[in-house]
Each structure stands twice: as C-alpha cells, then as structure tokens.
Design a binder for these strands. Structure first.
Lengths: 165, 165
DNA sequence: GTAATTTAAGTTGTGCACAATTTAATTGTG
DNA sequence: CACAATTAAATTGTGCACAACTTAAATTAC
C-alpha cells in the first residue's frame, strides 16, 4: 500500500474499511485542532493578568507594538499583527476611549491614522512588564521547546500566507 | 548578570537601559503571538474548503466528533473540544437549522442533550474526506514537523489547563 | 488636468469564545 | 421526604476575526 496518508498523523495500518479517511478525519490526529485549542487556552491564561490592566489579548498585542514604535498607521499595525481594519478600527477606538491611545491623522495623507500612546498608555508598560515572566511560568516549558514551538508556528504561518497567492 | 530572561526568547545582551523588559515585551519574541497568528491563519486557510460544505471551522470540529461518535452530550462534546455550552449551544442550533445535526433529549436525564447526525450530516463526511489532504498541502510541512508541532501544542495546552488549578 | 485606479480606513453583518448568570433537573444529606 | 448542593444546558453581553462593502483621499494613466 502506498503511503497516501492525509493531513492526519495517525498510523496507516487499518483493520476496517475506509479507515484512511476515518484516520484523517479523527480529532486526535488534527494538528490544526491542537493549534486552535492551544491558542484559545493561551488567550484564556492571559486573561486574569490582562484583566488587571483592563486589556484584552488583542489589545495587549496592539500595546506591545505601540510600546515599541509609535506614530505608525493602522495599515502598518495590521501588517505587524496580521489583522485588518475591520478588527483594528473598533479595537483602537476602545483603546482610545480608555485613554491609552490617540488616533491622529497624517498631514501628508489625510487617509492614514497616526497612532500614538497617551501618557497613561506609555505608563501601562511598567505594569505589563511582569506579564511575560508570569506567562512563561504558566506555560512552564523549557526555553528550547518554546523556541521550537515559536519557529514552527512562524513557519506554518508563512506557508499558509504563501498558499493564498 | 544572572539570566532572569522573561517569557521572551530574545537574547539577553543589551546596550540600552531597561532592555530586558523591552526584549520581553517585544512582539518578535512572543511565542503566544506566533501561536495566535498561526491559529488565525489556519482557520482562514480552512475557509475556502469549508465554505463548500457551508461549515465554519468550529462547526467542522463538531462534525469531526460526531462523525466519530454519536449520541454524546453537549458536555462530552465540550470536553473533547475544550469549548463550553455558551459557545456550543448556538453553534449546534445552527447545525440543526442546516439539517445536519439533531438535538434530542436523554430519557434518563432530561437535562442532557443527545447529539446525533441526520442522514445529510452523515453524508457530509464523504465531501469532507478530501479536506485533510488539501489542508496538509496548504501547510506544506514535513510530517515530522507537523507531529512535533502537534505534540508541543498539546503539551502547552495541558500545562495551561493544569495552571488553572 | 481629468478620469480611472488604487489605497487607507471605516462600516456592516455573521459567528465564534468566554465570563457571568439563569433555569431546570438530578443528586446528596439529614 | 424535604431541601441544599450540584450539574447540564441555555442565555446575555462583550469583544474579537473576518468577509464584503463603502467612503474618501491619493496616485496613475492618458
């Protein structure tokens, strides 16, 4: 029998009929389901820490970018976070109404928003500084494992983006 | 300098002040962001295939479970998918209104829903059978890499669940 | 220089995820 | 038996993600 294994990771031996498709359609063999569940669990794990800052996880990601670099556009932010204006516009409005972010306009190009932090937004960085450490304790993995996980996620993401073309 | 590296994966050398926290709060070093982005991209990649079956990715997951085992409760389904009734009840109603799933009641316990497939729901399995193969092509990774990715996601998920206790 | 095209951001609508709460049925305890 | 506690599912409300579309400004082509 040629190894025409599908996207499942189960073994190819089978005793009943149609087991190949059964294997492929089996929840236990779904890489994507593991990815999806781990991502959900990760967001859940962040929640109690982020609640103290009154941030959601996607809002925290936006703050991470802005703590690093201000004056960027919604487009640039979206390119960094792989999110579109449909997601970011309302999110940024929420951050603005919390007094963390200001949404200016570019002088050169009236279409683009220029995103920057208020002093409160800037100050929040200090309160957030312990989160990465706390989170790493929650995941409780070796740094090498985390590096490997990150690099495989990045690789998968790159491939999936390429497959759209 | 002791290596008190935070959950970032960046190197520990720094030239400016406060670089340790900067490193930890840097988007490029966030394992969780990679996980989150990869999971989003994965769901996006499934969409064109699942559109043909008129299913969303979470609906597809429910169908995967029911193709494997019917007569289970919402609770059991939720335990398998790591989702709660707040997510599953409306999702199952949608699957019911599409004529794929029936939501009966247990005779022994009037509280529990007994989930089963209609003939249309059962038949959809055949149409879905090519999806795992197509998806693996999209991710385009070696099977060993996928196995590693899956096992690390499962490990992270387990840890994150444990850290709630 | 004006019309066609492109681009940035915003809007609308759908479907998750999940916290918090509610409802109703079952189980446990005195 | 009664009544407290537990459990299963549903409900409500918030905030993503994203597709599809709209609006308006900038760019390009002629």
């Amino acid at each position: 029998m040629p190894n025409s294994e599908l996207s499942s990771l189960g073994n190819t031996s089978h005793t009943a009929e149609n087991t190949q498709a059964d294997n492929a359609l089996c929840l236990e063999n779904q890489v994507c389901f593991s990815l999806y569940s781990a991502a959900n669990a990760m967001v859940r794990a962040y929640r109690p820490m982020l609640d103290k800052l009154d941030l959601t996880y996607p809002q925290y990601l936006v703050m991470l970018v802005l703590w690093q670099e201000q004056g960027i556009s919604v487009k640039t932010l979206g390119d960094k976070l792989f999110l579109d204006s449909g997601t970011l516009t309302p999110l940024l409005k929420r951050l603005e109404s919390k007094g963390l972010v200001s949404r200016g306009r570019s002088d050169q190009d009236e279409r683009v928003r220029v995103l920057s932090l208020t002093s409160a937004g800037q100050a929040l960085k200090l309160e957030a500084s312990e989160i990465p450490h706390l989170m790493r304790c929650k995941i409780g993995a070796e740094i090498e494992d985390l590096k490997a996980l990150k690099s495989m996620c990045d690789k998968a993401l790159k491939q999936l983006h390429a497959s759209i073309e």
